[in-house]
Design a protein around this nucleic acid. Structure first.
Lengths: 282, 282
DNA sequence: TATAAAGGTGAATCCGCAC
DNA sequence: AGTGCGGATTCACCTTTAT
């Protein structure tokens, strides 16, 4: 695996250290098969507002500041999403995950930029955190927006038959029942604390990558974190490029992905199995 | 039940015939306990869709669902949502239902207007229409945004214990597994065709009204249609006001609601049952 | 009368190529 | 851009008809 080398050489898996927007600008047009993005959404936690760069916003009680904060978040998302649209192939699609805190702003921006929503997939958590105060319904979901770059792009990759096999011979729906990333899968430091606050379960990325790429395709994750996207891409024989700002996450991701056996065969098992069953049906 | 009389007399259930925005402007500030809104989704359907057996899908082609642009739709929603915010009591909340076609625009507007999202509830359909062409995941959900008018309004009505009982003594989550409105519940004309293209199931409104109102509260539905909100409100001993533009829907709603026994006791059964069990637990 | 088979339907942004 | 046509494509549930 390459680390911070020339990202335009798509022969190798790569992690780029740098600012997401600045790095995305360096990519050529129409060069990426799939984008998976898990952007920050720490907009309004308790009584504090944070900017996308994690600096705190003062004066949260003022309507002006609240709007200013929305505006700043919107500008940030407009920038990175515009670059994503530019570098996506005509056959490519993008996934963006978020919660109710940010997904309505993200979705609105994507529509304004001309993205075409194919599905709003609901990650229905098997083990969500309860609402301890009894003031709301238990928040049991996150939302993934799956979009093509343009309404006219009809030839996007979607492995319908594969996902049908994967789902017990019935069409997979837009509701995915998956547990939180816990246990052995969750990366933890020597102190036993979780290494990253929002590590996603591999099963989620497995469905994303299996359904909307082919083997050998290039998967880009502009908010790479501890590299779940890269780990699953490697297991499924796809290539990946990750962009991440923080050195500590890059180190964790690098170690994690290098451990994965390059002859890991799950991709073939799943896809050949589906292919065979499909043939037998005919 | 009153029909098109003085809507400001909250002693009676009322259906107002008129334009949603114009009628909302007539309401006094801070006067409504709950709003349930099922606005047009702006589906943007273009071509016909055929099933595998070559029959045509009877899609939504109503004039009321057509908007010229995102801007026109946004302006429409900003207007009616602004009035909703004004007339909502400090203890009141609002529900808005939508699909991926419109919910990201609606959610964005609500955030901009200062609404505070309490939950994004997923209506997870037990029997969604499949994706016939195998081009996407089966679209199995609609989304309900449940919001207070302001972040600072902490005293909104939420019947936590009741919903826990209703859900088998476990916290109800933000995912509601409910079937489509079909069979005897679905209003049909003499020709056997559905009377309204988007009638909602009563179970959905039952959860909305049970969870976020008390008996006697005033429930407003600015897009009343065939009156599901009114029917469920009456069964659960809440008062309702509906606004609807089309005479044919008003007639259907009026006949439907007048059939409901005024001594329908489900409200008491449910709520007393929950109350008793709750006491036993302590 | 009961059971089985056949037919209908739901807020849907649902094909791809040749001419 | 529009038209025509070959070919691939569906799940749960309710109603009607057949056995």
């Amino acid at each position: 695996m390459k680390l911070e080398k020339n990202p335009m050489d798509f022969s190798y898996d790569t992690i780029i250290r740098g600012d997401c927007i600045e790095e995305l600008k360096k990519f050529p047009d129409n060069s990426i098969d799939l984008i998976f993005a898990d952007p920050p959404y720490n907009m309004q936690l308790e009584n504090n507002l944070y900017r996308p760069n994690n600096t705190k916003v003062d004066g949260v009680d003022d309507e002006w500041d609240k709007f200013a904060s929305f505006e700043e978040y919107d500008n940030f998302c407009t920038s990175w999403l515009s670059e994503c649209k530019r570098i996506l192939k005509d056959t490519g699609t993008i996934w963006v995950i978020g919660s109710y805190h940010n997904i309505f702003r993200v979705g609105n921006i994507m529509l304004n930029l001309g993205f075409w929503i194919l599905n709003d997939v609901t990650w229905y958590k098997t083990n969500p955190m309860p609402n301890f105060m009894g003031t709301r319904f238990t928040n049991a979901t996150e939302t993934l927006l799956w979009c093509s770059g343009n309404k006219k792009n009809k030839k996007y990759t979607f492995n319908h038959k594969l996902m049908k096999k994967y789902n017990g011979n019935k069409q997979m729906t837009s509701v995915w029942r998956i547990g939180l990333c816990i246990g052995k899968e969750r990366l933890k430091g020597e102190d036993g604390k979780k290494s990253h606050s929002t590590q996603k379960p591999e099963e989620l990325l497995k469905r994303v990558i299996l359904s909307t790429t082919k083997q050998g395709d290039i998967v880009l994750d502009p908010f790479f974190g501890t590299g779940t996207t890269g780990a699953v891409a490697k297991k499924l024989k796809r290539r990946f490029i990750g962009i991440e700002k923080e050195e500590k996450y890059i180190t964790l991701a690098h170690n994690r992905i290098d451990k994965i056996d390059q002859f890991y065969e799950e991709a073939d098992w799943i896809e050949e199995s589906a292919s065979l069953k499909s043939q037998n049906e005919q």
